[in-house]
């Protein structure tokens, strides 16, 4: 699957596109873990705006990354859930265990002042 990656100061923004299911989730998980483990307490924002569906293994990847990230004081947040993905988050109750924001900017603003400055300055 295609997963875009951008860095704003200390923050990593991932933009996966397509379906995150048992076929594509290993790639997704590898990218997430790279981002989480890239030194220090890294805030990671996953923009799911281009994701039409996420299955249990994709959610599991988010959970593992989130747990790993907490060990170093980092955070994993998701943004821009499509209607179906939003429903999957609600039915699985993942909206209670992973931070969900409306837009990548909202997430960046909440997680890192430096990153927000970097984002706004282009």
């Amino acid at each position: 699957m295609d997963i875009g990656e951008a860095r704003y100061a200390d923050l990593v923004l991932l933009t996966p596109v397509g379906r995150i299911d048992h076929i594509t989730s290993p790639d997704f998980q590898a990218k997430l873990m790279d981002a989480v483990g890239s030194g220090g307490p890294v805030p990671v924002v996953v923009d799911l705006g281009g994701v039409e569906y996420i299955s249990s293994v994709g959610l599991r990847a988010l959970m593992i990354a989130s747990k790993e990230s907490k060990k170093t004081g980092g955070t994993v947040a998701v943004t821009s859930l499509q209607p179906v993905v939003k429903e999957v988050f609600e039915i699985s109750r993942f909206n209670y265990v992973v931070k969900v924001f409306d837009t990548p900017r909202d997430a960046v603003a909440a997680l890192s002042g430096d990153a927000l400055a970097a984002l706004e300055n282009g």
Partner: peptide, 18 residues
Amino acid sequence: SLADAFSIKEDWGHSSNI
């Protein structure tokens, strides 16, 4: 729920509707 099964209730030996 899937979220519980993967977090606070991990290794409690049960699964989810998902």
